[in-house]
Amino acid sequence: MALYGYTIGEDRDGNASNGKQLDVYRFLIPSAPGGTITPTRVGTVNIAGTVTNADLEGLATNPTTGRVIAVNEARATALPNNPGPVIVVNNVDQPFAPAQVSPTRTPSNLVRFGFESGADFSKQQNALYNISGNKTANLGGEPVGSSLYKITTGTPGTISLVDTFGAPTTAAQTQGTQPTNPGKFADGLAIDNLNPGRTRALASDFHTSDGNGNNLYKVDLLTGQLSAPIALRTPSGQPLNVNADSDLSFTNLGSQRLIGWLETGAVYEITGYKDELAASGIGLGSATGTNGAGFATATLLGNVTLPNALATAPVQYEGFTIVNE
């Protein structure tokens, strides 16, 4: 078996009148750094009509079926929040056979927060999780921060805000005008299905434009809480300094690897996070672990040559997941 990555681009022609034509690409995950990576287009998701914000930014692999699931970016365009529907698209890998469902919001007045999003599937909870956040406060007038959402399986299933934190969810959090993790921007999500547990999940932030550098965060799937940042470094020990939307994925077969992804097609392997997760006495909100003071190493494996990813007006490829094939 081999590890393949999947990603989805934005609307190919930018013309909503003929549907949202989102191309899906597949590529081999390198075992070591090695330069350019050539992808193969395996299909196109066409979301009919004029669905607002149909970018399929959250990609996840269902560990039971081995198939790829995608979640759109259902953000609001302005306040008061009035986002388009949450869309879950199943089976966007090979063989290519997409199907669409729109989860029911619970409660009914729930508004998803955030302009950027990532997703992953938890086998332990038998649910799809989505993380959404803003990196700047001027995007729709919403405050900077990240929130975690749970999407139950089924047709259509339900979507709910994961926010206990020991206190009731506020009306502002339900309406999307107040984040549940203020000051933290995350747009990628990876859940460890080989070693399940409430904190065996990580979120990614590869943006420097939010003012706090490139980081990982531990994610508590039961409370929606994000930890203090785990700073990403280069193999030489310098702070990683990239500025792009990202996603994150664990491999779930054999020797586990954590792979990071940038919308430009850059593929990173992230190491050194295991001690941070397993260190005795470490709790959410702490950035001190046995591998130092909350650091992990990001090594560039290569760049996937996706169409127009590095153009002046680029096509963005923000979602990423890994399939064992």
Rank of each mutant, 00 (worst) to 15 (best):
V101H: 02
P156G: 06
S255V: 15
Q225H: 07
T288L: 13
R105N: 08
I282D: 02
S132K: 09
T152Y: 09
L232T: 05
Q125K: 13
T208H: 02
L202H: 00
L310K: 12
A32S: 13
E142V: 15
R26L: 09
S17D: 10
A16G: 02
P239W: 12
A311E: 04
G14Y: 05
P229G: 00
N214Q: 12
F113Q: 08
T321M: 03
D11V: 11
D192W: 03
V88C: 04
Q124F: 13
F250V: 10
T299F: 11
N308G: 02
P156I: 10
A74Q: 05
Q21W: 10
T77W: 14
V71M: 09
L301K: 08
P229H: 01
T170N: 03
G302F: 14
Q100Y: 15
T104P: 00
T7L: 07
P229V: 08
V162E: 04
T290R: 12
V24K: 00
Q21I: 13
E325Q: 15
Q178C: 07
G285K: 01
G145K: 08
E142F: 15
A99D: 04
G265Q: 02
I37Y: 01
N90D: 11
A99V: 09
V86G: 00
G154L: 09
S102D: 03
I230C: 01
P168L: 11
V315E: 10
T52E: 10
L28S: 07
D245F: 07
T169Q: 10
P179G: 06
G140Q: 10
N15E: 11
V267E: 00
S255W: 09
D120M: 05
S255M: 12
N130L: 12
T152E: 05
V42Y: 10
F295Q: 13
L222F: 13
A190I: 08
G224I: 00
A167E: 06
N215D: 13
L148V: 13
Q100L: 14
W261G: 02
I282H: 12
A97T: 11
